[in-house]
Structure formats: C-alpha cells, structure tokens
Nucleic acid binder design. Structure first.
Lengths: 246, 246
DNA sequence: CGGTTGTTTGAACTGATTCAATCTGTGTGG
DNA sequence: CCACACAGATTGAATCAGTTCAAACAACCG
C-alpha cells in the first residue's frame, strides 16, 4: 500500500502491520486527550506516513507548514552548522511537532522506524480554534517541550560529559515510562553518534563515558537494553529531577 | 513610592522616572498588539514592580504562578546545578515569561534595572480565553522563545567558544534593534560572567574570546558600547542567521 | 579615599577532541 | 552456510581548547 510520496522519501506501510486504519484515537487518548476531543481531531484531514530512519524526513532549510504527531517510534529534531549536527529535541509517541513562521532551520529524522500523522497547518489552526481542549493540549505539549529544551541547554552548558549522558539516560527512561523503583530497565534506541549529537560531544567520548558508567556499576548493558543498577546515584551525579517532564 | 514587597526584594519606583502611570499600552503596542487588545489587557488586574539587578527576583525552586511582562530593561531566566549557573533565556522589553505547572526549577533576575508587569496566573488565563488576539500574541512569543532556546542549545552543542560569544553578540544586536548595514552599534549590558553563564564557559575564557574578536578587528569596544566593525564576518564565523528572531 | 565589582593576564592542568586502527554484530548475496 | 560488506562500538596516542587558580589592574560609587 503506497501511502505518500514527497521530495525526499517514498514510504510504504508495512502490509503486515497490526494497525491498518489511520486512527488517532489510540495516540491522543493515550497522551491525555478526551474521547470527544479526539473524535473532533480525527475528523480533520490528515495523512499517515511511515518513516525510515535511514532517510531524513525533512531537511534543514525546508519550509515548515505542517503539524506532525508521532503515532509510533521516535523523531529527532536537529540543526546543522559548519558540518556539525545538533539534535535539539526528541518526540516520542503521542508528541507533536508544531509549525512556526520563518522557522525552516531544523530538520526532522526518525530514530527508529516510525509512523507519523500529518496535518496541514491551516487544518491544525482550524482545529485549535474550534476545539479548545485540543488547543490547551497542544499548548501544554509546547510548554513541556520548552522545559525539556531548557534542561538540555542546562546540561550542555554546565554539566560535564558524564553528567550529560547520564541525564539523557534518565530522561529517556522517564519518557519511555520505564521508570520504576531502584532498578530501571530501558531500551536505548540511539547510536552513540546520536547521543553525541544530543549532548554536544563526539561519539568517541560518549563511548568512554558509557563504559565508565558501566564500570562504576551504575548501569549494565545487553545490546541496546540498559539496566540502571543505581537510579539514585545516576540522578544525583547528573542532577536529574523528573519534575520538568510532568 | 513603595510599589511592592515580596520575599526577596523591596523595591521603589524611581520618583524621577518619566513613566509614572502603570500603563501597558506602550509596551504591548510596541510589541505588535492592536490597541483594542491592549486595552482589554490593561483592564485586567496587574501590578508594576521595579527590579534591582543586584537581587534575584525569583530564586530556583519557587512555585511559578505568575505571568511577567518586561516593561523596560532585561530579565534573565536561569538554572542552577552543582553550584554552577546557566542562563537559559533573556527577556527584553515587551517580552513575557509565562507560567507552567511543576516548573519551579528556574530563577529570574534582572540584568539591568528593569520594570516588569505581573499578572496572576488566573487573570492571565482569563485574558487568554477572552481576547483571542492576545492569546495568539502570547503563543507567537512562546514559539519565538523556543526558537531562540533551540539556537542557544545549538550554539552550546556544536560551536566553539568564539562562535558562541559571536552568535550571542549578533542576537543581542538584532533583539536590541541595533542592526543596520555593515556597521552595527550595540550596548552590551552583560558582565563577562553573565556571558559565560549564557554560553556555557568561564568568564576568563569569555574575556579572551572577546579580546580576540577585537584584536581581529571584528568588533571594537568603548566601555559597554560595542561597535561591530565587520557584521558579515561576525555572522559567518558564528553561523548566525536572524530568521529565527522574526 | 577605601571598598567592591568587573576585567585582564599568566601558568599549569585536564577533559574532550582528533585521527587512526581494530573489533563486533548484522544483514546480504552467492 | 560461508564470504563479504557495512555500520557501529571500542581502544590508543597525540593534541588542543578551555578550565582552574591566582594575582594584578581598572572602573565605579558612596
């Protein structure tokens, strides 16, 4: 089933996927929206696109006149300058990327195979005007995203390499919902290069830092599965306080 | 005239100030709001407070249930961790700081003597609901602020010390409205320690970087007045593109 | 004038980068 | 099932950008 053809990608929906119909319901109710509001949103025109992590979905410099909600997977928002790349934000399932005038200076790329739901900007604005609960929902998401970026900036600005990586691990654990008591198990979907692009370092150093964390007994790894052995110490050393993610 | 007493500060309005009455009009019309909307906003309950740069206005960890608009001066929003400080955002005249649940992890401090106008959160929300133009205005401000934080994160993540300071100088010039052709004159209201806190370095290094910029003939200084001698080269070397400030 | 805050400079140090090589796991085609 | 290619992870050695510590200097202010 061919779903979408755009400048940079040609995607196919997996025919074996268990989620055939284009439904927002599961995504948005899961993200806190009422059924009534979800129905209003799902009546608005939109389309589903499956993203391949190997290709960029939107390159830096492209006009940004669409709102995107992640149905499954993870999206990275990034900037580039002088051949270097900085990942400035992540979007997990249920989270959205909203358009802004004159804001074409970021790219989007899937970290893992992802499904996203796309609204034209005008359709989104009509929705925001007619469904106040949805407008509030989007505003809260924006504020949360801002709080997260603030925290990332703080990490980059004042924490050392270890603190930055540890803080990111803690954030991923909480955003994935894998936070439990002292033992926290999470799936790290990122390459070390991507962690480097998020924390403003090189992949070589990320590798050393992660190995240090493991050698100190704070985490242990099995492939891309990470077990946080000492959550308290990991949060202490990284200055992590989950409040900003509420 | 005693205006306001709170936990951390006791402020007086300068009796010689030329702006006695508490009027939002000049601030918000200047920031792009229509007269009609401004009148609606100025009818809402609010108060004017003058801030002394020597004292913090709001320390990290305090609940944040007020919206603040800068009438004059500059505000800095900052975070602290492990004895270090990161300034995560600035607010110039006409710009606002909006509240968010569970977001008490930043402090506020005036960079220069500033006047701010404060709304209780509930009053702000009533305004947003009843004056759509004001709601849109606040939303655009939030989006612009997010775009600025994104740039700062990019700076911290991928630019070297020189690039970060140069990028900040360019941003200040544009936000102060002092951008002209090749020669740009701006007032730098910050100490080198504050620039260090914004760009994630030490004041010692900021000093060296600024002296380098001057030695290279890109800027020249007279006290806190800075003349950008080569705007083109300064933007090139810092990767500055003013689009995000629109 | 003395006190305070901010700027400037030097020297030693170190965390992180850079460059380069090796190792490991995974997927692909024959 | 093996050979091969490829992407990502790991390690070492040399280098460097920026920090740290300490001291001197300048500007401002009551």
């Amino acid at each position: 089933m061919l779903v979408e053809k755009e400048n940079f990608h040609l995607v196919r929906l997996n025919p074996h996927s268990s989620q055939q119909p284009v439904e927002l319901t599961d995504v948005l109710t899961g993200a806190g929206l009422s059924l009534k509001a979800v129905h209003a949103v799902s009546r608005a025109p939109h389309r589903l696109v499956e993203l391949d992590p190997k290709r960029p979905f939107r390159v830096v410099g492209t006009a940004n006149q669409e709102a995107i909600f992640v149905r499954s997977g993870i999206l990275a928002k990034y900037k580039e300058d002088a051949g270097k790349r900085q990942i400035i934000a992540l979007r997990f399932a249920g989270e959205g990327v909203f358009p802004r005038d004159n804001d074409a200076r970021h790219g989007l790329r899937a970290i893992v195979r992802s499904e996203v739901i796309i609204f034209a900007r005008t359709d989104l604005e009509a929705l925001l005007a007619s469904v106040p609960e949805f407008a509030l929902f989007c505003m809260k998401q924006s504020q949360r995203n801002s709080a997260i970026t603030d925290e990332w900036l703080t990490s980059c600005g004042i924490r050392n390499a270890t603190g930055r990586v540890a803080h990111l691990l803690c954030e991923i654990a909480v955003r994935q919902g894998s936070r439990r008591d002292h033992k926290v198990r999470l799936t790290n979907p990122f390459t070390q290069q991507q962690i480097a692009d998020m924390t403003g370092q090189t992949s070589v150093n990320v590798n050393r830092v992660i190995n240090d964390l493991e050698r100190q007994g704070l985490i242990s790894r099995d492939g891309h599965e990470i077990l946080v052995c000492d959550w308290v110490e990991l949060t202490r050393l990284s200055g992590f306080d989950p409040d900003y993610l509420v």
